[in-house]
Amino acid sequence: MLTHLINTTSGEAYINGIDVTRDPKAALIGVGTVVETPEFYTYLTPKETFELLGQLIGMSSEKISAETSSILEMVKMTEWADKKIGTFSKGMRQRIALGQAFLDEPSIIILDEPTSGLDPRGMAEMRDVLKNIGNGRDVTVVMSSHMLHEVSDLCDRVAILNHGKLILDDTIDAITSRSGARQIIIKLDHTPTTDDVAKVAAISGITSASRFGVDIEAKMPSEFARSPDLFKAISDLGIGAYNMYENESLEATYLSLIKESR
């Protein structure tokens, strides 16, 4: 509805203060979009595609030319600038899709499931580009996704919708510490023994520990999870710990919120 692909039956939706249901053209000025995995005009090259879209939104030839070079560099497609898009892989097309959204320095970029339908390599490439799109730019990126690991990896603010109702809108940090506890996954150079788990559970500040596949999952208060003392304490155990990372807690929060809202 925000990108005017679906007609509204009722209500209003504003972009930069303009109701997209009343004046979609005015509302979408200064907005770049990537909806799922769009297809391109296969007879055009990335340069020609940017030229077409740039002309459509009223950019000058000079500006189109200047922005095309920098955007293609950003999405790592410079060497493919003059090749027909018809020959591109899905991942490459999606990078071009992301690039075109940056034409004319938009103030808002709407990404709807930007990695959907991509193979693992395409997803990784896309995520790599997405991580850096805000660098040095005054732009708000609105991304919708069902992949919660991707959301917690890329976003700093999350809104959760359930059956069309907003049930949460907060920063990632606030959401992940909502329950007051965090989970840390500790990787060992061997399969954890009961003794290893007990040693971890005995660390002061850790509330519980258990086997988590071939790793150990430790639960602790939010503030302790971010303490440098935790690293030292686990290292000092001498249980062969070589890596630790925070377990996905957005998913747990999401599932509990969905359950609550039923």
Binding site: T3, L28, I29, V35, P38, A97
Partner: peptide, 10 residues
Amino acid sequence: TYLLLFTRPV
């Protein structure tokens, strides 16, 4: 291709 064209201010 409508996903590309129709989401523009046109």
